[in-house]
Design a protein around this nucleic acid. Sequence first.
DNA 1: GTCCAGGAAAAGG
DNA 2: CCTTTTCATGGA
Length: 305
Amino acid sequence: MNLYETEDMFLPATHPFRWSECMAYLTRSADECLFHIEDDKVYRLVRVAASSAWIEVAGREDGVMVRILAVSSPIPDLETSIAAFVREWLDLDTNLHPFYRQMDGCPVMRPLVRAYEGLRLVGVPDLFEALCWAIMGQQINLAFAYTLKRRFVTSFGESHAFGGRVYSLFPTPSRIATLTVEDLLALQCTRMKSEYIIDVAKRMTDGTLSKSALLGLGDFREAERQLISIRGIGPWTANYVLMRCLRDKSAFPIADVGLQNAVKARLELAEKPTIEELKSLATAWIGWEAYATFYLWRSLQQTVS
DNA sequence: GTCCAGGAAAAGG
DNA sequence: CCTTTTCATGGA
């Protein structure tokens, strides 16, 4: 491990950008194990090629400041790779103005885009992580999902101490592909989820499934079809992954209970909206369903500030 | 003890 | 092909 001496990198975001809103999402679980927050800055370990880098991300008025704290082994173009990772993770490059203009015509979304102006759709750039997180989260409450993820990461992911903290990387597909169902049952994953996760790991290890191939299709609906063809990945999981990893702005996990509860609260309904009601409502969101969903999730949190 | 949770597969009609 | 049931476990 080598300490890294360099100037901070400023990564500008398109206007409007609000760090406090991104932080509201990043701090939503105290059980998060892949990064930690201290003094309003985010710290995490990032895999870059065969190496990994410890980074610090701090908010600015119009973007973020990234500092590389250390690197496990020297690698070329480290700054470029880290900058690309952070830009993608925090979605710094999306122009939100068309989204906000369009939501102005939707009574449900209009108050939200005003309240959370500058909030970015925080992503999960690693496809394996996005798939595992979505599969683990199927039909269980979010608190337990975070518990499962933490057990998974601490059991099978790399961890490195740095500056008095433990930093973890999400497990690799090749590591998980060697596991048995019983290994994951021990974490309290269900048998079916354990099978799904190991199968996904095998597909990613043998190259049958990859982020670059899905993106290379150039058609998110075809990517959705291919994802759904995999056992354990239904419409919700496919759209969740399209939304948070592949950056499909039209991805729409319509079966999401959080989404449904958010709409119920916004419209003060007695019951959760039906799928048909949601489809009708979402005609106002066409092209921006993923961002609309993310803002609705945000509305389920208590507004800090 | 009950109900529900950021669903999906399998069975049933 | 569409609808209903089963699976499964912690959290509130």
